[in-house]
Design a binder for these strands. Sequence first.
DNA 1: CGCTTAGTTGACCTAGCTCAAGGACTGTGG
DNA 2: CCACAGTCCTTGAGCTAGGTCAACTAAGCG
Lengths: 254, 254
Amino acid sequence: MNQPLPYIPSSVVNVSALKASCTGCSMHQLCLPMGLDDADINRLDQIIGRRRRVLRDENLYRMEDPFRNLYAIRFGHFKTYQLDQNGEQQITGFQMAGELLGMDAISADRHHCEAMALEDSEVCEIPFQRLEELFSHIPALLHHFHRIMSQEITREQNVMLLLGNMRAEQRFAVFLVNLSARYAARGYSPTSFQLRMSREDIGNYLGLTIESISRLLSRFKKQGWLKVDKREVQLLDPAMLKALAAGTENCGST
Amino acid sequence: MNQPLPYIPSSVVNVSALKASCTGCSMHQLCLPMGLDDADINRLDQIIGRRRRVLRDENLYRMEDPFRNLYAIRFGHFKTYQLDQNGEQQITGFQMAGELLGMDAISADRHHCEAMALEDSEVCEIPFQRLEELFSHIPALLHHFHRIMSQEITREQNVMLLLGNMRAEQRFAVFLVNLSARYAARGYSPTSFQLRMSREDIGNYLGLTIESISRLLSRFKKQGWLKVDKREVQLLDPAMLKALAAGTENCGST
DNA sequence: CGCTTAGTTGACCTAGCTCAAGGACTGTGG
DNA sequence: CCACAGTCCTTGAGCTAGGTCAACTAAGCG
């Protein structure tokens, strides 16, 4: 399994058979190895499992799946969601490159939510047991992992604030501003990006209906705060959107 | 700091000056030391800080406070909440004995939410830096800590499902059933308990108004599902409440 | 005993939901 | 090339769950 592979031109290799490597990954400054020195990144590389392709609308994992791996997104986008007894879904987050999936599963050794690719994506598998073994040798890695889990907790608290306290308009502004910031952190335009999820997914995530999302987009467009063409969005007045998101701007008008 | 203390009758000792100890704590089967053998519990005891009393309506920590400790609740109840720019609060959870507070703060080295005692309570301080040092020596402790953090993530996902998808009645049933289960796990009656939080807090947590909570209580009472006198609650039809919580029962009636 | 805070109840209102119709793309098959 | 079916989105009209406002009760407390 760890034998050297024969040379195969990368254009024809089955990528999912390859072990992933943090060293060469463009996301390593955002992802698990953040802040590690080269020696420690190499040790992390030792335990990282294979890469895995996940096609659009395919599940990376389902509820109740046994827990073996965390997943770091190499490229692509995912949504994670909960299902209730009646099969109703509640989307709990949208994830992009450099973010970690699967931490919900540690507590019960099986997954508590589902993760589905919003477009053709690739993740690398991180066998959790081996990762935990590695922690005792790389304290910096352990600490960073705790930060990542804690960040997920605070992210979810922010969503609870959104769902519990905010009006539709503010929720939607928060959503746009959040996407914008995350694209900026990845070196993409903070004002011009593509929504990878449907209006329905946005509505579900924000606790609103698809119709409400559609109306909000139309209204924001009419106000001149953004341009939108299908899923292509351009933020024309980021300051206004930030003010709306912060609740500073009331915007009962018009 | 670790010198032996002179003998002082416990009735007059200032409890907050005492180091806490897991060994003698009734919560140790629910709390951080869960599953550890005696030797490891002793090592954990070495690093546990002092006990700290928190009076009703007092904050254990505030947003932006620097992060030093996690806190394990010895007795009492807390609420944790987020504040937005306008000072509006969104309660993100109610915590009781044996539960861990402060994990939100790991990611940014300062607290991201506030924790306030709902009644006179006591916690023990767990210096996080020393805890992380201990992890490399007690893998079982590390793993259990990860489970606790993961559990907090899944708990919050459940709240997101509640806030995003459920009708008022179902939210309130979920709330009651959840309290019931947690008291049961602590050896208290699952059908008869005191609400430690105001109607306003319940409403805030569930994304509803105080008036809605009041009406729901009245309605549930009229249906014979529970008795309520001020904050004393008795669940008369737990099965029905569970069905409501699960969304099996629709209860549009009456 | 008066003041304050917590909770209840009723009457009314509205943000966002539901339902319905239609438009715009995409892919498929002929 | 067009026809069609399916998906996704938009827009309008009307409805309703839960919010808002207001009045009132009851308990705690100096």
